[in-house]
């Protein structure tokens, strides 16, 4: 094992372990915070793979924006802050079987398939210089299409979450929540 492989293995253990905590923890806010750890460890993995621009975009967008958005969602749906007993569905054992089967198939396939493949890691392949040139030279049409898609998603999210589109907003009591 080279040093790069040791560092990547440690980051991968952190990423997978915190991902397991994301899907098994009993507290919603802790799930979002473990997601930060998992995505941050994955950004470290990108750095080891010399994809430095992707790593910083991951930190900026995922850790900075997406997790904050998820935390806003948790707060706005008035989720219980402490432990919640009903976060797991009744079919969790079937889900566990499906996930273990998926993991077994995928891991055995990639281990058998890439047993003797190795890649030389040389710095500079994923710098902002190289990626910027690639985006604005080769991939500029998908880039522009993606900006239109982002605009459409923005407009759709605003229209969906505005409460004064269908009539005056009324103050809603919380009787239904009390019944649960």
């Amino acid at each position: 094992m080279t040093g790069q492989e040791i560092v990547f293995t440690l980051l991968g253990v952190v990423a997978v372990g915190s991902a397991v905590l994301v899907v098994t923890t009993r507290q919603l806010v802790h799930a979002a915070l473990w997601l930060v750890v998992s995505l941050g460890a994955l950004a470290g993995g990108y750095l080891v793979l010399t994809a430095e621009f992707v790593a910083w975009v991951q930190v900026l967008i995922y850790v900075g924006a997406v997790v904050v958005l998820l935390l806003f969602g948790i707060m706005l749906t008035r989720a219980p802050i402490g432990r919640a007993a009903d976060l797991d569905s009744g079919n969790r054992w079937a889900a566990l079987a499906v996930a273990l089967a998926t993991a077994g198939v995928l891991v055995s396939v990639v281990v058998i398939g890439f047993r003797d493949a190795s890649m030389p890691l040389r710095a500079g392949g994923g710098s902002a210089d190289a990626l910027g040139a690639a985006v604005f030279r080769t991939w500029v049409l998908p880039f522009e299409v993606l900006s239109v898609l982002l605009l459409a998603a923005l407009v759709g999210a605003i229209v969906l979450s505005r409460s004064d589109v269908g009539g005056p907003k009324e103050k809603e009591p919380t009787k239904k929540r009390g019944e649960r």
Binding site: F8, F114, M119
Partner: peptide, 9 residues
């Protein structure tokens, strides 16, 4: 680096 490490993760 071995390709299998990122693929397994």
């Amino acid at each position: 680096m071995h390709v299998a490490y990122p693929a397994v993760v």
